[in-house]
Write a protein that binds this DNA or RNA. Sequence first.
DNA 1: GTCAATCTTTTTGTATACAAGAAGCTCGCC
DNA 2: GGCGAGCTTCTTGTATACAAAAAGATTGAC
Lengths: 218, 218
Amino acid sequence: MEPKRAEIIAETLEGMILDGTFADGARLDEVQLAARFEVSRTPIREAFQRLALSGLVEQIPRRGVFVRQPGPVELIEMFEVMAGMEAICARLAARRISDMALEEMRAVNAACQEAVLAGDTDLYYRENERFHHMLYRQSGNGFLEQECLRLHRRLKPFRRLQLRLRGRLRQSMAEHEAVVDALAAGDEDRAAVAIHAHVAVQGEKFHHLMASLKPAAE
Amino acid sequence: MEPKRAEIIAETLEGMILDGTFADGARLDEVQLAARFEVSRTPIREAFQRLALSGLVEQIPRRGVFVRQPGPVELIEMFEVMAGMEAICARLAARRISDMALEEMRAVNAACQEAVLAGDTDLYYRENERFHHMLYRQSGNGFLEQECLRLHRRLKPFRRLQLRLRGRLRQSMAEHEAVVDALAAGDEDRAAVAIHAHVAVQGEKFHHLMASLKPAAE
DNA sequence: GTCAATCTTTTTGTATACAAGAAGCTCGCC
DNA sequence: GGCGAGCTTCTTGTATACAAAAAGATTGAC
C-alpha cells in the first residue's frame, strides 16, 4: 500500500462526483460506500474530508455529506477566477519565459493543431492541458502554479464537455497561438488579455451549452 | 457540541502553527496532542488532514505530520498571488461597486486613519482587514471572494508582523485611499495597479524584515 | 382525521483495539 | 573496532465498538 487507501478512495469518489455518477444534492452514505470499497468507515470519512475541503461535497454536521455541483453562476465565477489567475501567469511568464520554453510551447501547439486536423478530441484535450500547465510553470511562481493546477483540475469536467462544441477546437487553437506570440514579444498586457479571453470564453460557452440543454429544467 | 471537536482542534492547531508555537519542521505527535486536548486520536487525525489540505503541515505516509512554514521565497510568491487576486477583485469592483459600498469603504478608511493617529495597531489591523474583505465582496464574484479570504487568512500572521515597521501604517493608509479613488472613478486599471502594489509591497517588506532579523541563520 | 409528542431507528462523531510498517537498537560477524 | 542483519519498539493506518443526535414512525389526544 503505497498511497493510503483513503487517498485512493478520495480520488475515486472525486472522479465519480465529477463524471456525474452522483447527482447534485445526493447524500453519500458512509456504510454503503464502506461496503462498496470493502473498507471500514474510517478511510471513507477521511476521503469525505478531502472532498469537503476541495468543495466537491458539503459536510453538514450530524447530517452527512452531500455532493455539491456548482450551479451555472458559480461555474461562470470559477472560470472568471481561472481566467484571472492564468492572466497573472501570463504577465509573469511574459517577463521570465526562456526561448527554450517558448519553443516547447510552440511544439505543444503544433501537436494541438495535428489533433484538430485528425479530429482527435482526446489528444487535443491532453495537449491543451499541457499548454496550460506549461504556462503555469513559466510564471516562475511555484505557489501560483499549484493554485492554478488546483483550480484547473476542479474545472476539468466542465472544460471537457464544452470541447464538443462545433468549431471550438480550431478557435481555441488560434487563441493559444495569440498567447504564445504575445509571450514571445514579451508583451505582458497582450498575453494577459489573450489568455483571459481564452479561458473566460469557456465559462460563457459552457453557460450557453447548459442553457440549451436544459430548456426549462427546475 | 455545535462544531465538531475536530474543527475546534484544527483551528487551535492552525493558530498555534501560525503564531510560531511549533517550529518549522517540528513533528506533531498524535498521542501527545490527544492527551493535551483530552480527546482520542481520531479528532486529532481529522484536524491534521485539514491542516495538510491548507498546506500548513506536510503529511508523510507512515512517518507523521510536520509543520511546514513557508520560506522567504514561498512567502514572496504567496504575496504576489494575493496581489494578483486582489487586483482581479479591484478590476471587477471598479465596474460593479455601488455608491453605498464606496461610502462604506471610505468610512472604513477613516477608521483606519483614526487608528493610525491613535497609534492603535490592533484597531488598524482590524479595519485594514475589513477594507480588504469589502474589496473581495465588491468583486461581485462569490467564488473569488472565498478564494481571496482563504489566502488572506493564510497570510495573516505575516501581514501582522510587518505592520510594526515604522511608517508602514501611514503609507498603507495612503495606498488604500488611492484604491478607493480609482474605484470611485471606475478606473479599473488604476485600481488594479494600486491594490497590486499595496499588497505586493507587503511581501517585499516582509522579506526585508526577515533578512534583517536573521543576519546569518541557516 | 389531523396534529403533536414520544419512542425507535438510523447515522454520525468519538473512543478504543488491532495490525502493519518504519526507526532505533542490540548482537553478531568480519 | 566498524558494519550489518535481525529484533524491539514506537507510530501510523484501519477496523470495530460505543455514544449522542437527528430523522422517521407510531401512538395518543383533540
